[in-house]
Computed example of a mutant assay.
Amino acid sequence: MVPEKEFLIKLAYAKMPFGKFEGRYLIDLPEYYLVWYKNKGFPAGLLGQQMQQVYELQLNGLEDLVRNIRRQYPRSRQ
């Protein structure tokens, strides 16, 4: 599988592991929360990369792209 495609599929199912929005899909995090992290600094590692990508997608109004991926690639097929 193409690395970018695999990253987006994983992003579609990634959930916030802690805090106020624990358990919520990253793509569904409120914009103000991601802006706060953008200013504070995203966490290290994969979570930070995913949150930064979600920030960029929301900034450009492309979050439905990830939601559509979740519909197209249901968890049971992975």
Results as ranks from 00 to 15, higher is better:
residue 25 Y to P: 11
residue 67 R to S: 12
residue 28 D to E: 15
residue 42 F to R: 04
residue 1 M to N: 08
residue 30 P to A: 12
residue 75 R to W: 02
residue 4 E to Q: 14
residue 8 L to T: 01
residue 69 I to D: 01
residue 6 E to C: 06
residue 29 L to N: 04
residue 19 G to L: 11
residue 55 Y to F: 12
residue 10 K to M: 02
residue 5 K to E: 09
residue 25 Y to F: 15
residue 72 Q to F: 09
residue 68 N to E: 04
residue 16 M to G: 10
residue 47 L to W: 04
residue 37 Y to D: 04
residue 40 K to T: 14
residue 50 Q to N: 03
residue 41 G to P: 02
residue 26 L to T: 03
residue 36 W to G: 14
residue 73 Y to G: 03
residue 11 L to P: 05
residue 34 L to E: 08
residue 41 G to F: 04
residue 62 L to H: 05
residue 18 F to T: 15
residue 5 K to W: 07
residue 74 P to R: 11
residue 75 R to Q: 03
residue 42 F to S: 06
residue 29 L to P: 05
residue 6 E to T: 13
residue 17 P to I: 00
residue 61 G to P: 02
residue 43 P to V: 04
residue 49 Q to G: 11
residue 27 I to A: 00
residue 5 K to L: 13
residue 8 L to M: 10
residue 40 K to L: 11
residue 22 E to R: 14
residue 67 R to A: 11
residue 23 G to W: 07
residue 58 Q to R: 13
residue 74 P to C: 05
residue 35 V to R: 06
residue 36 W to K: 15
residue 49 Q to F: 00
residue 1 M to L: 11
residue 51 M to K: 05
residue 65 L to V: 10
residue 10 K to V: 00
residue 31 E to R: 14
residue 22 E to Q: 15
residue 53 Q to P: 01
residue 7 F to G: 03
residue 13 Y to P: 02
residue 71 R to W: 09
residue 31 E to N: 08
residue 41 G to Y: 04
residue 16 M to K: 10
residue 39 N to K: 15
residue 19 G to K: 10
residue 58 Q to H: 09
residue 54 V to S: 09
residue 28 D to R: 08
residue 4 E to F: 12
residue 65 L to Y: 10
residue 52 Q to Y: 07
residue 32 Y to F: 15
residue 12 A to F: 01
residue 56 E to V: 06
residue 76 S to P: 02
residue 49 Q to R: 13
residue 6 E to S: 11
residue 33 Y to A: 13
residue 38 K to D: 07
residue 19 G to W: 09
residue 61 G to D: 07
residue 66 V to C: 04
residue 15 K to S: 07
residue 10 K to W: 02
residue 73 Y to F: 13
residue 8 L to G: 00
residue 38 K to L: 06
